[in-house]
Simulated scan of single mutants.
Amino acid sequence: MSYQEAELVNWTDFAKSRSELGAAFLRILGYFREDGEKAIGAIEEAFRARNAAALVAPAHKLKGESAQFGAYRLSAMAEKIEMVARRCVESREGPDELIEDVVALRPCFTETMALLDRDANPLVARRPQGFGRRIDSPAQGFGRAAG
């Protein structure tokens, strides 16, 4: 199966990770965002330099971290980049065939993070219906002097 056929996010695995990580979930999701940005930057830089060896480590890291959160399309893209880069290193070829994959990586990461953030936001489940809550007394209103 190609990465285009992989689901963007497997919500069952995402929920499992969320449950297993517990209170650390949001912090680790933040690390994934930071690490993902760095990995994609390193992949893009290595590709521009036509350095197949430099593609391997950031693609490998992105593959594993993406899979942890159920981000299977991103994980599959990173896996393809890693495997082709390894083959290019062994055969002493440039990674030119990866151009479409490298170009598609950042938009996939952005789309994936938007979905993960939307689902991970603790306010989404707790948002009250309507425009807000009614303030019954001035003492309840934030920043209002009791009168």
Rank of each mutant, 00 (worst) to 15 (best):
S17T: 12
S17E: 09
E20R: 11
A23N: 09
A23M: 12
A23R: 03
A24Y: 12
F25M: 11
R27H: 14
I28D: 03
L29P: 02
G30T: 04
F32K: 00
R33M: 02
R33F: 07
D35I: 04
E37R: 09
E37V: 12
K38V: 04
K38Q: 15
A39M: 05
I40G: 03
G41M: 07
A42F: 03
A42W: 05
A42Y: 00
A42I: 00
E44S: 11
A46W: 08
A46G: 11
A46P: 11
F47C: 05
F47V: 04
R50I: 06
N51S: 15
A52V: 09
V56Q: 06
V56C: 12
P58L: 09
K63V: 08
G64K: 07
G64S: 10
E65L: 12
S66H: 05
Q68C: 01
G70W: 00
G70P: 02
A71G: 06
Y72L: 14
R73E: 02
S75C: 06
M77P: 01
A78C: 05
A78D: 04
E79L: 13
I81P: 04
V84P: 05
A85M: 03
R86S: 04
R86H: 04
R87Q: 12
R87D: 14
C88G: 09
S91W: 08
S91A: 15
S91Y: 10
R92Y: 11
R92I: 11
R92Q: 15
R92G: 14
E93F: 12
P95M: 14
I99L: 08
I99R: 14
I99Y: 08
D101W: 05
D101G: 01
L105W: 01
R106C: 04
C108A: 12
T110E: 14
E111Y: 00
T112Y: 07
L115V: 02
L115G: 00
D117I: 00
R118D: 10
N121G: 00
N121Y: 07
V124N: 11
R126D: 13
R127N: 06
R127Q: 15
P128W: 11
G130C: 05
G132T: 10
G132S: 03
G132K: 06
R133E: 15
I135G: 07
